[in-house]
């Protein structure tokens, strides 16, 4: 018992750990929404939706941004601060592009006649679920902006990588979450 208690402590930074629990929490929210979708799709009057092409482009964008933030983390650890700043900026821009593309997809759907009013269907869920996901990306992008401002103008030079690691983990998470949601909408009819 003695040995166990010694080893259990301080294995993982509390902020990172908190993020993992928060991720569990976010997963539960989307699990609630997607299971609501499944329940509803089995009921009468369900209307299917064809996901617009543009969501494939946004998928490519967010995958690419996952790559750039990973490279940014690597550069940070190698103390290549210039490259780190550039890659972070690229990631942030890719995140913004992702949100614009999602908005574009919503507009296409909306203009094709799938709107809030009236009959229930996959379209209404798509707005809510993809919209909430976009909000999570937006939150990440804002955090990225804050980190960028610190990286460019910050006075204190810190080489602790916890902050950027937490950021990268979160970013990969919203990426994987997007893949799940996208595949879900393509598969479950």
């Amino acid at each position: 018992m003695e040995a166990v208690s010694m080893q259990q402590r301080k294995k993982i930074h509390p902020h990172k750990f908190t993020l993992w629990i928060a991720i569990g929490s976010i997963i539960m929210m989307f699990a609630g929404l997607t299971s609501a979708y499944i329940v509803k799709s089995g009921q009468p009057n369900w209307q299917d939706v064809k996901t617009p092409q543009v969501f494939w482009y946004s998928t490519a964008t967010i995958l690419l941004s996952s790559l750039t933030i990973q490279m940014a983390l690597r550069s940070f650890k190698q103390r290549e601060m210039n490259r780190y700043r550039q890659l972070m900026a690229v990631t942030m821009i890719l995140g913004a592009v992702f949100i614009v593309l999602q908005w574009n997809g919503f507009m296409q759907l909306w203009n094709s006649g799938i709107q809030f009013k009236g009959v229930a269907g996959a379209g209404q869920f798509l707005y809510v679920i993809f919209g909430l996901h976009a909000l999570h990306v937006l939150g990440g992008a804002i955090a990225l902006i804050v980190m960028l401002i610190k990286a460019f103008f910050g006075q204190t030079k810190t080489y602790a990588s916890t902050g950027i690691e937490v950021m990268a983990t979160y970013w990969h998470f919203v990426d994987i979450l997007w893949i799940y949601l996208f595949v879900f909408f393509i598969w479950i009819k």
Binding site: S25, M28, M29, F30, G32, L33
Partner: peptide, 10 residues
């Protein structure tokens, strides 16, 4: 942490 998000989605 696991149940409140489901209420939020509802």
């Amino acid at each position: 942490v696991l149940s409140f998000p489901v209420l939020l989605s509802g």
